[in-house]
Amino acid sequence: MGPRPAGREGMIVAVRPSGARPAVALLRAAHAGPTLAVTTMTAALALAGDLAPGRASLVTAAVLAGQLSIGWSNDLVDLDRDRCVRRSDKPLATGELSLGVTRLACGAAVATTVVLSLACGWGAGLLHLALVIAGWSYNLGLKSTPFSWAPYAVAFGGLPVFVILAGPGLGMPAAWVPLAAGMLGVGAHLVNALPDLADDEATGVRGLPHRLGARWTPRVAVAILVAASAVITAGTRSVSGAVSLTALTLVAALAVAALVGRGRAPFRAAVAIALVDVALLVASR
């Protein structure tokens, strides 16, 4: 993980608990936004893939448990770093959430992930566990390397494959499906890292976004997300030409906004392109 730099005053900063409710703090520590986004995407893919409601719920619950474990492990691994830069949005670092509660929640999420994943079938279950391991590998060290994008590519690319394998025996998806999903994951990684580039670099994290820098990261993210849009529209036959054309026009407009915008505009435009890509991917199922 690299050397741990000193905090702003040469030491780890202790922060008083703010008195927030533990359940709310625990949810925030699980990275609620990304967790909800991936879980919602899974549910949409499952329903679009004609999984029975019970099966779709099982698949979605397995992914939710895995995402919770990844989110909590991230904050556990980064605790000292988050304290160094005084991350007020990290309940574990501020003291709103205890270390013991977080470890217990993370352990329970891991156990639940194993049980629910294998309940989806051995093939699908083992694949999903491999995707969760990819997420953990990011937390445990890959985030600080030029290959920080790889866990996202593997996890997002494998997600639609997991959903299909857990379904009623429809076979493997076309190659463009995991390719486009993997590209979406890499774009999401770059976009997600943007707000924290300075804090990450201050604590020794040097992943791909940090090596690209604040100027090039949104541009590369937009390029990858636009390419994902093109792959999806070229590969699918279930989305009408009018819808595809409208989506690509919107993506092009957002790409221009991202490239010429200032401040938070490139970040917001890249997120919007990612949302369009997710909608196209779900519609293609």
Results as ranks from 00 to 15, higher is better:
residue 136 W to H: 15
residue 182 G to S: 04
residue 194 L to H: 07
residue 258 A to G: 15
residue 85 V to L: 09
residue 148 S to F: 08
residue 268 R to A: 14
residue 254 L to Y: 02
residue 63 V to I: 08
residue 237 R to F: 00
residue 149 W to F: 13
residue 160 P to V: 10
residue 159 L to Y: 04
residue 2 G to H: 10
residue 173 P to H: 04
residue 162 F to T: 06
residue 122 W to L: 15
residue 228 A to V: 03
residue 188 A to N: 10
residue 198 A to P: 00
residue 196 D to T: 06
residue 101 V to H: 05
residue 150 A to M: 12
residue 2 G to C: 00
residue 111 A to Q: 08
residue 163 V to I: 10
residue 91 P to T: 02
residue 154 V to L: 13
residue 240 S to T: 15
residue 170 L to Q: 14
residue 89 D to T: 01
residue 54 G to S: 12
residue 201 E to N: 00
residue 253 A to S: 12
residue 245 L to N: 10
residue 82 D to E: 06
residue 47 L to P: 01
residue 91 P to K: 04
residue 255 A to F: 00
residue 249 T to M: 08
residue 197 L to P: 00
residue 28 R to K: 08
residue 135 G to I: 05
residue 34 P to A: 07
residue 71 G to W: 00
residue 136 W to K: 02
residue 117 S to D: 12
residue 6 A to R: 14
residue 43 A to R: 10
residue 218 P to H: 05
residue 234 A to C: 04
residue 33 G to D: 03
residue 66 G to D: 01
residue 38 V to W: 00
residue 92 L to T: 11
residue 251 V to T: 13
residue 115 V to Q: 08
residue 226 V to I: 09
residue 137 S to Y: 02
residue 54 G to K: 14
residue 152 Y to F: 10
residue 121 G to R: 11
residue 21 R to V: 07
residue 24 V to M: 03
residue 153 A to T: 11
residue 67 Q to F: 00
residue 279 A to I: 03
residue 240 S to D: 13
residue 277 D to E: 07
residue 105 A to T: 07
residue 165 L to T: 02
residue 7 G to T: 05
residue 222 V to G: 07
residue 164 I to C: 00
residue 251 V to R: 04
residue 96 E to R: 12
residue 157 G to K: 08
